[in-house]
Write a protein that binds this DNA or RNA. Structure first.
Lengths: 169, 169
DNA sequence: ATTTTATGTCAGCCTTGTTGACTTTCCAAG
DNA sequence: CTTGGAAAGTCAACAAGGCTGACATAAAAT
């Protein structure tokens, strides 16, 4: 910000904002995201599940007891899409749906032991890749990585991300 | 690397490798990527095109004259999937397919003026978001961002990314 | 002359997203 | 107590964009 308000691009101060640099960032996101999802995809292929199931499992694990509506908001899909996924996971005994105690219309979602098992397999694979990348790049790079990603989110996504950052259930 | 080989986790040196930190990174990727693709998606909705068309347009713009096989390798889809997309783009006059001069089996792909127009609209939107994020995070964060993303790619993706990094056609 | 490569195309399938319409359950306001 | 509306679930239909398999053609390579 200091350099952005300092007037015209003085020297190399703003060279990281050239279209060329931005294009590289865009392409890095494309290629990195593909690799990022590859490990879970490999684990899930062959099972009847896909990336949609992975996402549901991840966020139920992350926030046990979350309601269907909560999950809907985080995943950003329609209830019909999510319902198809949840029906499969519940039917296969990976997710348990408990009627709310205060509001009995709500369903609170929990992973079963079996569901936790798959979650662990999926997140172990994804964490291993992330850990290797973090280790290779070092702590300062990691800080920058997170800063840029966070700045890239639009307001609603950032709100959801940050609300997940700290507390558990 | 220096701290990784320095022995057991001394003090806070390796705190950035905790499962909690890795989970935050994983979720940051999820939310950031969703926002990252949101602007082009908005532009394309209503047209008959989707994200697949965007990717084809991006890489044809990036490497004019690229062959179908090249594009196949970069996008990582089957020729049938790509062909459906290319047929639409060629039919609508956004992409031109030229028979190769040396090897007449090859088709060299170029954007037409109309195709360049759409490319610009899409990449302007995506660059604007990326520029805002870069500016907010600053040049050092950007460097870290790129380092981590690159380290996250598997070998083949990194090769493709880097081969695009420098030269044009 | 034969094989391989690059491309295109048809048909059919799957996953995962979408809308729209409808029901059931239940809280809360009247 | 009745009724309105919210939360959840379900059915049907559809679209985008992946996939496989099979096949056709032209041209290069052997």
């Amino acid at each position: 910000m200091a350099q952005a308000t300092g007037g015209p691009a003085s020297g190399e101060t703003l060279l990281f904002l050239t279209d060329e640099q931005l294009r590289k960032g865009i392409e890095a996101m494309f290629f990195a995201y593909r690799s990022f999802t590859a490990d879970p995809d490999r684990i899930l292929e062959g099972m009847d599940y896909g990336r949609a199931h992975h996402r549901a499992i991840h966020f139920i694990h992350r926030s046990p007891g979350t309601t269907v509506n909560n999950l809907l908001a985080i995943l950003g899909v329609t209830k019909q899409s999510l319902n198809r996924v949840l029906r499969a996971l519940i039917g296969d005994g990976l997710v348990e749906s408990r009627v709310g105690r205060q509001d009995k219309r709500e369903r609170h979602l929990h992973l079963t032991a079996k569901g936790e098992g798959l979650e662990r397999a999926l997140s172990d694979a994804q964490r291993a890749r992330m850990r290797a990348a973090y280790r290779a790049a070092g702590p300062e790079a990691v800080q920058g990585f997170r800063q840029v990603l966070e700045a890239m989110m639009d307001a609603e996504a950032r709100r959801q991300y940050q609300s997940l950052k700290e507390g558990g259930a």
